[in-house]
């Protein structure tokens, strides 16, 4: 099995999708010659040409709005938004058109568009480059939202997202782009809209996604040294959520910690907590605890280590849950 970084796996996934279907287009700022600011699309324009890998004007509403038109025409555009905090000029087109054209037309006009967004902090960046806006999309009916956390998922989930006949907002953990792992290119490990148990355990369930999956796996390893047995679940699909494995796990452990970089208020983690209390009420030995970013704007980078949930904060929540 080849070793790949997440960035490389995404690029290879895009390449495979483009090879498979000539209607797949890549469009975004600097995605062509430069290969994207994170080099995810490196080499694709050279191989597929300027009509399939479009270096677009600097205009996010334009990227999404024209992708909607191209989808009406029968194309399957994959849009790159350069950074999480830059998606908002395109948010109107995402919410008003991309999410609603299928419903408006009652299925006559599908919207098979993928919007890739590198998200999350931890890279010492200036403002608007470290945000976690996934809940703003998960709240919008008509959109599907996923987040990958490792190279193998990156390779497969991007292809599965492109094959989906609905718009998919695809979040990529930017601070993990350069982390390598083995990628099985033979077949996808799971359907796109499914969560996965990455580490089985019996005492506390930890649900997470995106960049913090690695953090939680490391926390589980550290806990093991202290004799604690954590089960780590990578949610992967944020809308629709696939909480079956979480319910099953919580019914065994009685304890749940939900982890995300995003602010907690009205968030994906809030949704997980609400549904788990509804489905697993009598199994819970403690309230569902959340370890998240604060309900503040993303801070200046020199504060981000305090803002971002880390291994210790995850284990602190685990301890509090068990001590309840």
């Amino acid at each position: 099995m080849p070793q790949m970084t997440i960035a490389k796996a995404l690029g290879e996934g895009l390449r495979a999708a483009m090879d498979k279907d000539p209607k797949v287009l890549i469009m975004g700022e600097d995605v062509g010659k430069l290969g994207g600011v994170f080099r995810v699309t490196d080499g694709l324009q050279k191989d597929f040409g300027e009509q399939r890998v479009l270096d677009t004007p600097l205009s996010e509403s334009g990227i999404i709005g024209t992708a909607v038109g191209l989808a009406i025409r029968g194309y399957r555009p994959v849009c790159e938004i350069q950074f999480d905090g830059f998606v908002f000029p395109g948010y109107d087109q995402i919410v008003s058109q991309l999410a609603k054209v299928r419903f408006r037309s009652q299925g006559k006009v599908p919207m098979p568009v993928v919007v890739r967004i590198p998200f999350g902090g931890g890279i010492g960046a200036v403002e608007h480059h470290s945000e976690s806006p996934e809940s703003l999309f998960a709240h919008v009916a008509g959109l599907k939202v996923v987040a990958c956390s490792n190279a193998e998922d990156a390779y497969w989930m991007i292809q599965q997202a492109i094959e989906t006949d609905d718009p998919v907002i695809f979040f990529e953990p930017k601070r993990r782009y350069w982390e390598k792992a083995e990628v099985s290119v033979a077949q996808p490990p799971a359907p796109l809209f499914s969560s996965r148990v990455l580490r089985p355990g019996g005492q506390v369930t930890v649900a997470c996604y995106g960049p913090l999956v690695k953090t939680c796996l490391e926390a589980a390893t550290a806990a093991e040294a202290e004799g604690l047995d954590l089960e780590v679940i990578d949610l992967r699909a944020l809308s629709p959520l696939d909480l079956g494995p979480v319910f099953e796990s919580v019914r065994r452990t009685g304890h749940l910690v939900v982890v995300s970089e995003a602010p907690s208020e009205s968030s994906v983690t809030a949704e997980v907590a609400a549904r788990v209390q509804q489905e697993c009420f009598f199994s819970l030995e403690a309230p569902v605890l959340r370890v998240t970013g604060f309900d503040t704007p993303y801070p200046p980078a020199k504060c981000e280590e305090d803002f971002l949930p880390d291994l210790d904060r995850v284990l602190d929540a685990v301890d509090r849950s068990l001590a309840w």
Binding site: G62, G65, T66, A67, V68, R73
Partner: peptide
């Protein structure tokens, strides 16, 4: 909104 959707559609006419 439709001005961008129309432009995208027309880009598709060029690509086709």
């Amino acid at each position: 909104n439709q001005c961008l959707n129309a432009t995208g559609y027309a880009m598709g006419q060029v690509f086709d």
